[in-house]
């Protein structure tokens, strides 16, 4: 494909692509990341890799695991060592990882420009 014909790609925050909820098990936070539309799920699978999420949270977690749930158009991330000991030991405001979900939604992924425009618009 000639360079000019390649669709432009722009960075887009995950908040425009997915919604999320998080919880805890001990010192591990989980973030379930759910595509806003079923058609966006392959984009999540391709772009929200384990390595990228680990880089996003570097210094905040000790390890990341990723699981795929195509039936729910969702990915589940386990963020190990994320909660400063977790449970009652943790001194953190978010000791139970309740809002780690939104911290993941800050992450940017490369998205075709036209799609990014549409997703930004539909977010209002």
């Amino acid at each position: 494909m000639p360079r000019s014909a390649r669709p432009a790609v722009v960075p887009l925050q995950l908040r425009f692509v997915a919604h999320a909820r998080s919880g805890d098990k001990g010192d591990t936070a989980n973030v379930g990341l759910i595509a806003l539309e079923p058609g966006l799920y392959p984009l999540l699978v391709r772009e929200v890799t384990r390595a990228r999420v680990a880089r996003h949270f570097r210094g905040m977690v000790s390890g990341v695991e990723r699981f795929e749930l195509p039936n729910l158009h969702a990915l589940n991330f386990l963020l190990h060592g994320a909660l400063d000991g977790g449970g009652t030991l943790s001194l953190k405001t978010d000791a139970q990882g309740k809002v780690y979900s939104t911290a993941l939604l800050r992450m940017e992924i490369p998205v075709p420009a036209a799609l990014a425009r549409r997703l930004r618009r539909s977010a209002g």
Binding site: R21, S22, G23, K25, N30, F67, N71, L72, N76, L78
Partner: peptide, 28 residues
């Protein structure tokens, strides 16, 4: 969906004393 992923570990094996549920099989 948000509740299903809450406190989720390995979605293939949600372990309880009664059995092991596979959350990747759930159809909504």
């Amino acid at each position: 969906s948000e509740q299903l992923v809450y406190e989720m570990g390995d979605p293939h094996a949600y372990i309880t004393p009664d059995g092991v549920a596979d959350f990747t099989s759930i159809q909504l």
